[in-house]
Each structure stands twice: as structure tokens, then as C-alpha cells.
Nucleic acid binder design. Structure first.
Lengths: 200, 200, 200, 200
DNA sequence: ATATAAGCGAGACGGTACGTCTTGTCTTGTC
DNA sequence: GACAAGACAAGACGTACCGTCTCGCTTATAT
């Protein structure tokens, strides 16, 4: 007996329109970047997407859910924000943090971050997502674990706390709209991972 | 002839009402705690303060400015959030972080933090204030400097980055609504200040 | 194939709510009578009608338009203000003018008239309507024409000017809040239609 | 003993500023002509007159009172609106009505009249003034009386009603924004004063 | 084939809040 | 004590969105 054999009565009626879904997510990402999480409107998204409001409300309960889905689909954050992997954990983290801090100097990038943070504070789901996936759980923590294993980082380093401190520092700077200065990434890594072991 | 002798034409008209100002800030702080930054309304504040809307708009251009002033007057954050000072920097920081993390377990405290973060992302001023005064510039950094001087912390510790990492970690946890677990503060301090020098 | 077969694209979306329209006109008429044209508020009407303000603004551009529609639907003026028709033009006009002048002694009736006049001076549409339909074009002028034809009035009487003089006299008295005295209607008719042809 | 000898307790303090009074009345007349009775604001008058609002409220209870005083001082109506006096009552009235009807073709003149009417319907005082002084009591009625005495008008003409009908007809046309046509004044006079006695 | 049902675009609805404007009163300091 | 300036509580203005609810159409099974 396969799992497909006992099917539900197979609902009638039109099926969800993928075109509408795409248009909505697209418009959401644009409004998010343009107006920011707080100041974007469902009505604006609907109209920009050429879609009835109800089509949004049918599938997403809140603005937060809409943004979450955009976030999960990678429509909100530029590709350059993924942690690179060259084998050298410390160098990769430095590159990554540098990119983020540089992004913060540009008003658009700044708006993106602050909007993301606003979304996270308004919406538990997004907050959780940010904590879990933007770095803490996945990429960053994994690379840290790999770094410990490879002997590049001190054994016994508390991974979660290290990730939190790194991401957190970046967020604090985003909120403060602090412009990047040379060496920022280095200093931050020195604080969080300990001073660099140079030559012996 | 003193510099006071040449006074400006001495403006006429009624002077700003301190009573109204107090009532407004009071009501703002309450609404901030109750409904959160995003969902509090100027109209609600005016009505709660027994004040005309115009009296608010006359003195504060935006909701953000209103909240900033509350923040500066210490109406938003409970007293227990000031960094204690027993002489032992590390112990003081542990106590302080513990208190914050504990506060985050309570929905009210959580709302307070997330609202503050939302305010900071919406409003440059608040963001800067948060970065400068909630800890980075003043109390935390000063204590860190004192700690370095007293030999309790490693010489050459980058103070700003250390503060940012500490506060940032807390903010990340606030956004993720992560419940506090025993030892959190210790682990965080181990990461940021380096492992504790026990016995010898 | 008739000309109706090629219809316009048949607009979609919910249709205008007749219930809301009725409630709004009803509330408007009440506020008009109670508070007068100048001192009635859209907000008050909306709230009395149990309707969102936008529903009013969606369909009527101004307070004046709202009142005009009430006027056209006969919601503003009591029924007794229609010109009676017994066959004797002069007697009918006397009855009619008497009724109006009497109405003006009562504060409510006075407010009704002055409000109507205020509305007419504020709003071209209403002014035109008042001139055309309250009497000049329709009932009064028609009865005058009939009177001329029946030989009850002098041939060559300028109908428009006669109507205007009659209505105008009433309006002037309304504006002056002049109390009615016996014989007023008679004297006015004597002036405008000429002295009554008694006996012969 | 002169009438000045028994003075009241002789109030102290500054005396009413005639300059302020003039500036206020001037500004009122301008706003009345420009924006109309309903849409002019005390605040606007105060600011245009370079005067504190309180100075207005100190001396006039309402907007209506302010306008009344302007009316009485002849600041609202142009000079050409005084009834001429050549000895021939009928000709004088024709000239006068012609002027008024012509004035109504110009938007400014129209606004003036409709504003005046609006003021009269809002404000009993103004209404009475309009009824009494714009024509009924003073100039028009007096000339009519003179005309009767001189045998130019039929004896027994009810003066008040005749005035009311004349002024009223003009007001009705103002409210209807009816453009003037040649012969209007003649026809109106024919209706109200009876047909012209030509050659007979 | 034909009912039946869901999705869709459009958009009206009852509301809440916005930020502005005006009202009439009160207060301050000058003349 | 009148005045210019201007703050104040109150509240209406007209606009923008909210989230819900009809409409009339277009798909898709299910009979």
C-alpha cells in the first residue's frame, strides 16, 4: 500500500497561480528595498504586482510572513553576503565581514539591513530566521566548527556565542549607521576569535 | 560689557508648557512599552496625555524623535540595566548580561528590546543613540578601559569592537527571542574577553 | 444585433452599497436640519451613518455635492412646501407663501431655509438647483403659465421674473428672520401679480 | 454742569488701538472678497493684519460680527451699488438693478454677493442688516415712498413688500449664478412696479 | 457536457491613524 | 491694560492603508 493510495477527495477549482506568487514576492522585495519594512504597504505591493489584495491575504497572513518568504528565497539579500569558503576560516570571515560593513556605507545597503532588523523585531518568525539562518546556525557556525576541527581555532570555542557576537557586532553597527573603517573586520575577529597567531 | 548684555529681542508669547511635555513623554513611554514602537500612535499618545495632537507635532517632528527623547531621559529602560560597578569588570559584565538575558525571557522585557531595536532601525537618531549611549561609548567601554588599566583585561583589547560584540550578541538573541540558559553570560564573556584566568 | 450587444468591458469589483448611500443621505439630511450647512461635519455624518469617511469621499467630492443630492431627493424640504393646485393660481400661491412664511417663524424651519441659502451661496450646483427647481423653473413658473392661459393673470406677464420676485421676497425675509404678519402673502401677491381683481 | 463732568471711574491702562481696528477691518474685507465668508479664517485675518488673535476676539465675538462691522462701514460693497437719485424713481431703480446684475457676471462680484448671503444666513445680525439697510428700510424704500408721493408710482403700493421683491429677485439670481441678459431690469420692474406708463 | 468550486483582478466597505489647519482661550513680556 | 506673539486642548479636514467582503471571470476537477 503506497502512501499515495489513500488520497483526499482531490479538491476542485483553479489551482494557485505561480505567476501571481512570483509577482507578489518580486514586488515585496522591491518595496522592502525601496521603502523599508515599516513603510511598505500591502496595497502598494498588490498594485505593483498587478494583483488583488485578497490574493495576498489568501496566502500570507501578515506582512511579516511575506517578507519571511522573500528572505528564505534569497530575494532580500545580495549574493555577495554568503560566507565564502577558501579553506581558511579566519580569512573567509574577514572577507565576509568586510563586505557587510562596506555594504553598510551605501544608503541602499543600510536600508536593507535596518529594514531586515525592523522586520525581525516586528515578527518573531523573521527574528528566528535571522538568528538561525542568516549565520548563527548554518554557514557561520558550521565554518567555525570546521575551523575548530582543523585546528585553526582554539578547541572549546563556544560556537553559538561566537556566531552571535560576530553577527551582533555587525547589527549594532548597522543600527548606529557607523561607517566602515579599515581594519574593522580584523579588530572584530581579534576580539571574538582571539588574536591572530602569527609566526610561531 | 559682558556677553550677556547684548540679548536677543527676547521672544514674546507663552512659554512651552513643561506639564504638557512631561505628560507626553510619560504617555509615550507607556505606549512604547505596551504596544511597541511600530504600533503605538501619536493620536493615542495625545489622548492619553490629555494633550492636543498639535502640541506633539509642534515640538517633535516624528515618532522617532519622541522616542529618542524618552530614551535620553531614561524613561524607556529600567534602572537595573545600568552596568554595576563592584571593581571587578568581568563580574560586573556577567551580572549585567545576565540581567538583560533574563529580562528577555519575560514578554514585556522582550517587547521593550525589540521595540527599541525597531525604533533604532526606523530612526537614525535612535540608532546612533543606542550605539553611543546604551553601552558602546559610555558605561561599557569606560569600564573596559578601566579593566585594561587595572590589568584585569588584556592590554591592547580593542574597546569599541569589544563593546559592539557584547551588545550585539544580546541584540541578536533578542531578535531571535532566544530563552536564556545558565552559563550564557559566561560563555559570551569567554568568547569576547578571552577565557577566564582561574587560579594561577 | 442591437446596439446594446457590444457592452463596455463590464466593470469588476464589488458594486456600490445602496444601504451605505441611503444611510449617508439620511444622516446628511439630519445634520443639515440640526446643525446647519456650515456647521455640519463630514466626520459627524460618517459616524452617524455608521460608515467610513472614505465611503463618503469616494462618491461625493464635497459637502455641497452631498447636500445637493439630498435636495434632489427631496430629503431637505418638507412636503408641505410643494405648491398646491386647486385651479385658482392666486389662491394657491397665497396658501403656499403663507405656509413658507409661517415655517420661518419656527427656529427649525428658519434654520432649514438659512442653511439652504448658505449651501446655495457656497455651492454653485446647489444655487442652480435652488433657482431651477425649488420653484422658478418647475412648479411656480408652470402654474403662472397656466394662470396666464386661463386668463387669471395678465397676458404678457414675464414668468421668470415673477417667480424670481416671489421666491426672492421669501428668501429676503428668511435672511432677515422677519416674523410673519397677517396679510403678508396678500400684499406680496398684490405687488408681484398686480392688485386682485375683485367683483367684476 | 456739562455732560462730561460726571465721569465713570476712569478706566486705567492703554486705550483701544485704532490702527489695529482699521487693519483688522481692512484684512477682513480683503479675505471676505478673496476667500468668501465661509472659508475665511480669523487666524488669516490676524496674520494679514499683523495683529494678535486675541485683539480680534477682544472686540468682536464672532466672525459674523466682524463682517457686520465691515458691512456697516461700507467696506464690503462697492460705491456703485448705492441707489442713484435723478428724480425719476423708475429710471434710478433700473440703473441700480442693472449695475447689480452686471456685477454678478464677474466672478469677483458674484463671490461678493454669495459671501454676503452666506454671512446673512449664518448670522442673524448680518441678515437683519441686509434686510434693513442694504435696501429695504433705507434707500430703496425711501425712494419708493418718494415715488408714490410724486405720483410716479401707484398710491397704496406696499413699500416693504415691493423692496423685498426687488432685492429678493436679485438675490435669487445671485444664488443661481444667472448671467444678466438685456431687459432683465425692465422686466423685473414691470413685474414689481407694474407696466411702465408710456405715453398716456 | 455540465455542474461545482476554488483562484483571480478589481474594488467597495467600516475603520484607524496620519499630519495639517483652525477655533477660541490662556500666558508672557512690551509698550 | 491693550497689544503681538504664540502655546494650548479640541476637533475636523482629506488621505493612506488596514483586513474583510463582494463581484464577475477564469480554470479545473467530479459527476
Amino acid at each position: 500500500m503506497t502512501s499515495e493510495s489513500r488520497q483526499p477527495p482531490a479538491r476542485r477549482g483553479a489551482v494557485r497561480s505561480e505567476a501571481a506568487r512570483q509577482a507578489i514576492l518580486q514586488a515585496t522585495a522591491e518595496q522592502f528595498a525601496t521603502r523599508g519594512y515599516e513603510h511598505m504597504s500591502i496595497e502598494g505591493i498588490a498594485s505593483a504586482a498587478g494583483v488583488g489584495k485578497q490574493t495576498i491575504y489568501r496566502w500570507w497572513p501578515t506582512k511579516g510572513a511575506l517578507v519571511t518568504e522573500c528572505l528564505l528565497e534569497g530575494r532580500l539579500l545580495p549574493d555577495q553576503l554568503t560566507l565564502p569558503d577558501t579553506g581558511d576560516v579566519r580569512a573567509d570571515l574577514r572577507t565576509w565581514i568586510d563586505r557587510i560593513l562596506t555594504l553598510l556605507d551605501d544608503p541602499t545597503g543600510q536600508g536593507l539591513w535596518t529594514s531586515l532588523i525592523a522586520a525581525a523585531s516586528d515578527n518573531v518568525e523573521i527574528g528566528r530566521k535571522l538568528h538561525d539562518s542568516l549565520g548563527v546556525a548554518s554557514s557561520v557556525t558550521q565554518r567555525l566548527a570546521a575551523g575548530v576541527e582543523a585546528g585553526q581555532l582554539a578547541a572549546g570555542t563556544p560556537l553559538t556565542e561566537t556566531s552571535e557576537a560576530l553577527i551582533g557586532a555587525v547589527i549594532v553597527r548597522a543600527l548606529g549607521r557607523i561607517p566602515a573603517r579599515p581594519g574593522d573586520a580584523d579588530r572584530l575577529l581579534a576580539v571574538v576569535l582571539g588574536p591572530e597567531q602569527s609566526a610561531g
